Amino acid sequence: MAHCGGSPEASVHYVVGAIASAPEDPEPYTVLAELWRAKPAELSELTRDADSLRTVLAQSYIRFLQDDMDGAALAIGAVTGVQPDIAWGRAPWFGDARFLGTVSADALAEAAMRTMDYGHDLDTESMRERFRPWFHAIEVVSARRPSPEPLAKMAILLRTCGLVDASFALCDQADSIERIMLTEVVRAGTWRKVGDPEQTVAAFERALALDPANWSLYLDLADVRAEQGDFTAAVHLVDRALKLAPAELTLRAAGAAYRARLTGSPAALSELIELAQQLPNDSYRDLLIDHACAGPDLPAELVAAARRMQDR
């Protein structure tokens, strides 16, 4: 702290900046550990601000020093999600046997999900290289303490990074313990990424067999059938979902869109226009409008009104 005027806050700021410059360098972590031993109360106070990337990064290592490996994993996952172009996983503690031998599968899976929170493109060679420590951690923890739901969640990260075969293998490992709906949903998403709609449908159907009251699975299937141009099947699937959740906004919008596309119903397109204003997902709203506006013989003024929704 001598170089920072004796200020713990300035010291942490300096050390975390050094970590960001070279996450694999052990020296900044040594300094942070010394600060923690000297001023534990002050550093605990400083790292309570979960809205700051720097403090969450410091928090991840302090959790490791406290033997809170789950907390350490969750924090580094959050940091990685915000800024995946830095190889945060190369931190020496992240590959440490004490961490990998203790962190729970649930926490590592949740941390892996956090790395994807901001929708960055992780399917590149450079990203795969940065995420190599994550792949190793997943391999170690999956072998040490396998559990179906965490395995399925970790498979999502592998898929997002373009490791399709490894993602399928983790799903197969999850199935060998217990078949659950989530694993089939993850497998369906991976087949969708590969571009195989029939395998995607088959996986969603297996998911439905495991959880037949899940309306969102019917919608997933309907969306795949719509991508294939089978709007009769899409309407049928949405109608089945609506029996389970008749007030669900997204279902009602999808049903209106697919009916408009199938039958050219002005009433269905009008319903979609009304519901589209409330849909939380703009890209899905625009997709539904594209489907609906391709319906046969729809009034031009209604189609124009629907298209205007896409510009909002």
Score class of each variant (00 low, 15 high):
41 A>C: 01
118 Y>E: 13
80 T>L: 10
147 S>E: 15
143 A>C: 10
51 D>C: 09
110 E>G: 00
15 V>E: 11
114 R>G: 00
98 R>D: 08
48 R>P: 06
113 M>P: 02
102 T>V: 04
89 G>A: 11
132 R>S: 15
154 M>T: 01
52 S>L: 05
112 A>P: 07
74 L>Y: 11
77 G>V: 01
100 L>M: 03
28 P>A: 02
91 A>N: 03
108 L>Q: 05
24 E>N: 12
87 A>D: 09
69 M>S: 10
92 P>M: 03
124 T>W: 03
77 G>K: 01
73 A>S: 11
49 D>K: 02
84 P>A: 11
71 G>P: 05
103 V>K: 04
114 R>F: 06
161 C>A: 14
70 D>Y: 05
51 D>E: 15
122 L>N: 00
19 I>H: 01
123 D>M: 07
121 D>G: 12
150 P>A: 10
41 A>V: 12
121 D>S: 14
105 A>Y: 06
112 A>V: 02
39 K>I: 02
85 D>T: 14
91 A>W: 03
115 T>F: 07
147 S>L: 09
37 R>T: 10
157 L>V: 07
15 V>D: 04
76 I>N: 12
13 H>P: 02
100 L>Y: 03
81 G>N: 06
102 T>W: 06
145 R>C: 08
128 R>L: 03
76 I>C: 10
16 V>K: 02
148 P>W: 07
63 R>N: 09
86 I>G: 04
56 V>M: 08
20 A>I: 06
137 A>P: 01
23 P>K: 04
98 R>P: 04
58 A>N: 00
59 Q>L: 15
17 G>T: 04
145 R>P: 00
100 L>V: 01
37 R>K: 15
87 A>H: 12
39 K>S: 14
28 P>C: 02
157 L>N: 05
30 T>I: 11
54 R>W: 10
67 D>N: 14
25 D>R: 12
51 D>F: 13
48 R>M: 11
132 R>F: 08
17 G>Q: 04
113 M>N: 11
19 I>Y: 07
112 A>W: 08
32 L>Y: 10
68 D>F: 00
90 R>D: 15
112 A>R: 08
87 A>P: 11
150 P>D: 03
125 E>K: 14
157 L>H: 05
134 W>G: 04
42 E>Y: 08
156 I>Q: 14
39 K>W: 13
130 R>F: 10
58 A>I: 00
142 S>P: 03
149 E>F: 10
160 T>D: 12
29 Y>D: 00
153 K>P: 01
99 F>W: 06
97 A>P: 15
104 S>N: 03
58 A>M: 05
62 I>F: 04
43 L>F: 04
117 D>T: 14
150 P>T: 01
153 K>C: 05
34 E>G: 15
158 L>S: 00
50 A>L: 12
97 A>S: 15
92 P>G: 07
131 F>W: 07
151 L>K: 06
78 A>L: 12
72 A>F: 04
64 F>I: 01
84 P>D: 07
42 E>N: 08
27 E>Y: 15
138 I>E: 09
42 E>L: 09
55 T>P: 08
105 A>K: 05
73 A>T: 00
62 I>C: 06
87 A>Y: 09
19 I>A: 04
140 V>Y: 06
47 T>V: 13
94 F>K: 00
139 E>A: 11
38 A>L: 13
140 V>L: 07
79 V>P: 08
88 W>H: 10
85 D>A: 13
139 E>V: 02
83 Q>G: 06
135 F>Y: 09
53 L>G: 06
54 R>V: 00
114 R>H: 12
